[in-house]
Design a protein around this nucleic acid. Structure first.
Length: 540
RNA sequence: GCCCACGUAGCUCAGGGGAUAGAGCACUUGCCUCCGGAGCAAGGGGUCGCAGGUUCGAAUCCUGCCGUGGGCGCCA
């Protein structure tokens, strides 16, 4: 079927040419969904955009376009009108929505709304990357939900996605962690700046006497992290070890490359990166005066390795917490110093979450051991609600996550509201079968009887899912899908309330058409939830 | 002091160049013969932090200021 957007765009372009407008090179017709129903189904600002360059009055030009379009109507167009300062508005016949419903049902949960933006391009999404010195905490949870949702969205849009977790399994923190475990195991106080959490006591108690505390502690922490992330269905393709980079001499190679590029120098007994040559505030230390690497150096080697694995057309996306935003400039500077394409590395900084329970703040503090583990959040709230709640807002905002509200099984809880919409349409289909309704195959059903405002609203919203997914993927903004789901679920609940599918007084052909409609709605809900990694239950 | 993000309805947040700025919660008022009322519908409520600028058009882009959060280590 012809994409409605393409056919409208082509028609507008033809109308502009017919009106004698010389289109600027690279001109693309602007088409959008008007915010207000009375402005039609699609709207174009083309006349406004070209009027000045063409020396025309925008309203008059728009009127000329509308007249031409009325005489040369694209498929499904019912009415063309001019409004406001010079918008050209299209009102479409319901037939375009009926076609879309049939397409949605045919495509199904496995492919409706898929986009071909990536064309197989490799993307390595790195997220969570918690230190292997303890459990993942609630703050990591947002990164986990977000990173995985971005990965799912990119997959849905045709990218070849790798999910990656970077393990900082060497360095100062790792030493402190090992000595803390050993001290507690021996009944001694933990060293200064050591780890104090209750989990240290628990884990030290499990540690065999002959174990290497660092090595054993690393495995213990990773197993714990993997387990908890698994309970919210976050799985990684690759777990990259910092220590392995050292062992493979990748760090020496990186040092050599930086030296060859003239990007490093010695001073005060340390080795420095000339990051200020590439946009950073100041130069940064790579090797400390005591000979130990800083965090930055292995990370540079790691990103070289990732770029190499992603290939020349590949893209790296890093999801970092707000407390790491200061590292973006130096990391990009390092990549620039090595001659890498700066657009190949994209860092998304997620703002911190304020965690509450019944309005009372729960403070996160890994150092003091006073931390809320992600495990506790999932146990209290559930995996689906945890993910959905983390994805309610833009990553640029620092939202409040109220555990009690997120856990509540009530319609005021957005995740419950959306999942309930899915369960409801599933239950209608079950009910229809129980009532002995024999369903026709979808392509035999006459959908033209679907003209109720509630039905039209479901179809209009469903028709936007593909665009929403595309923009959510492009903007790395899964919350756009969350927002769409809440709106779409509201349309489904309204339909459910006003339009019965089965029952006395419902004509058989309307029952058949509505069964197809709710099937399409089910697909839309399941696809949207799927891109967020949230389940779509058939009953609740 | 410098860097990043944010400031939209009483609260939590969408919208991030277009037309009369939206949703949920809370508040007011209606609606249960029948598919799940764990609902639906209607209503009140906003100088989009402030001041300039760019534009045919700014909540949206730019500059400054104010406020909030985070960062500014040879920790990660």
């Amino acid at each position: 079927m012809a994409d409605i957007r393409t056919s409208l765009s082509d028609a507008l372009r033809a109308a502009l040419v017919a009106a004698g407008v010389d289109l600027p090179a690279g001109f693309s017709v602007g088409l959008e969904r008007p915010a207000r129903r009375e402005h039609g189904d699609w709207s174009s600002n083309a006349a406004l955009a070209v009027a000045k360059g063409a020396g025309r009055n925008p309203r008059e030009l728009a009127a000329e376009l509308a007249t031409w379009l009325e005489e040369n109507q694209p498929e499904h167009v019912a009415e063309v009108s001019v409004a406001g300062p010079g918008f050209v508005n299209f009102r479409l016949a319901p037939s375009w929505l009926h076609n879309m419903v049939a397409d949605a049902v045919a495509a199904g949960v496995s492919s409706y709304g898929r986009q071909d933006l990536g064309q197989g391009r490799t993307v390595i999404v790195e997220f969570v990357s918690a230190n292997p010195t303890g459990p993942v905490h609630a703050g990591h949870g947002r990164g986990a939900a977000y990173g995985d949702a971005v990965a799912r969205l990119l997959e849905w849009c045709g990218y070849d996605v790798q999910r990656e977790f970077y393990i900082n399994d060497r360095g100062t923190q790792m030493e402190l962690y090992g000595t803390s475990l050993a001290a507690v195991r021996a009944g001694q106080p933990v060293p200064e700046d050591g780890y104090n959490g209750q989990y240290i006591v628990d884990w030290a108690g499990d540690m065999p006497a002959d174990a290497d505390p660092r090595q054993w502690g690393r495995e213990r922490a990773l197993a714990d992290q993997r387990d908890v992330l698994g309970t919210m269905a976050v799985e990684f393709d690759t777990w990259s070890s910092e220590q392995a980079l050292v062992d493979s001499r990748a760090i020496d190679d990186a040092l050599g490359a930086l030296d060859a590029a003239g990007a490093s120098y010695e001073s005060e007994g340390a080795l420095w990166l000339r990051s200020s040559d590439h946009g950073d505030d100041k130069d940064r230390v790579l090797i400390k005066s005591d000979g130990e690497y800083t965090y930055l150096l292995p990370d540079i080697a790691y990103h070289r390795d990732k770029l190499d694995r992603a290939g020349s057309e590949g893209l790296l996306i890093n999801v970092w917490g707000a407390d790491h935003h200061g590292y973006v400039a130096r990391m990009k500077a390092a990549m620039a110093a090595l001659g890498c394409d700066p657009t190949a590395l994209e860092v998304v900084v997620t703002q911190l979450v304020r965690l509450e329970r019944d309005g009372e703040e729960v403070r996160l503090s890994k150092r003091t051991g006073d931390l809320i583990e992600l495990r506790d959040v999932i146990d209290e709230v559930g995996a689906d609600a945890t993910r959905f709640t983390y994805l309610l807002q833009s990553m640029d905002t620092a939202p409040t996550f109220d555990l009690a509200k997120a856990a509540a099984q009530v319609m005021e809880n957005p995740v419950f509201y959306v999942q309930m919409a899915h369960a409801r349409v599933c239950s209608i289909a079950v009910r229809a079968q129980a009532d002995g309704v024999v369903r026709q195959s979808a392509h035999q059903v006459d959908l033209s009887v679907l003209v109720h405002e509630r039905e039209l609203e479901i179809m209009r919203q469903l028709s936007t899912l593909g665009e929403v997914i595309a923009s959510a993927a492009n903007e790395r903004a899964p919350h756009r899908v969350t927002t769409w789901l809440r709106d779409f679920a509201a349309a489904v609940h309204s339909f459910y309330h006003d339009c019965y599918v089965v029952g006395s007084g419902i004509p058989p052909e309307l029952t058949q058409a509505r069964l197809v409609l709710i099937d399409a709605a089910r697909v839309g809900l399941a696809v949207g939830l799927g891109t967020l990694g949230v389940s779509a239950p058939e009953s609740m």
